[in-house]
Amino acid sequence: MTTQEHAVEQVHRDDIRSKMGMWLFLFSELLLFGGLFFMYSVYRFMHQQDFSIASKEMNTFLGTLNTVILLTSSLTMALSIAAIQRGKKALSIFLQIVTILFGLAFMVNKVIEWSHEFAEGNFPGSASLANRPPGQILYFGLYYSMVGLHGLHVLVGMTVIGFMTVFTIRGKITQDNYVKLEAAGLYWHLVDIIWIFLFPLFYLIT
């Protein structure tokens, strides 16, 4: 790119444009989970009894703990943006790292929970699950699909925030130009919102 072109791009930096792209992407993500929520609501409607029985097996304590972890990580993410807006680079970096660590804690919790389920034989394709009534098979099918897909998003979010931390350290994200960090934050909050719905649907409603 010639310096002249580069100069043109500098003038045309449009933060609203970047955020708009991110929001539209978030809608796609929302609808991706939306499809699963549609399936969940239909099957819950068809098999209310079975869903109720199956959801009693969930570990509500771990679920609540994970909700609090994710909500707190959302707080640190939001704070890291507020910090960079005030030019407090070190604080922002610290808060971003804390966010990633909370994400990690969430995932560790998930692993504990899933390995427990697997030990009990409640995993897709297992004989003991296949012998259950259809509604419970579907409940666990949806549980693994939705929570699994959400976990994948947490991992992606952690990676993205990791990149942002590197950018902040290298000075690519600054007090005047933090739209990248803001976009990453939007993504992280969406992951949080999806969990806000997954939590009651799988752990609480019995």
Binding site: F27, L32, G35, P124, L138, F140, Y144, S145
Partner: peptide, 24 residues
């Protein structure tokens, strides 16, 4: 933007069903 994700997740679920025998 709005409807493509829905077919995406639906076909993904078919893949998941074929590979992991998840009941959907």
């Amino acid at each position: 933007v709005i409807v493509t994700p829905i077919v995406g997740i639906t076909l993904l679920m078919v893949i998941v069903e074929r590979v992991f025998h998840v009941g959907i």
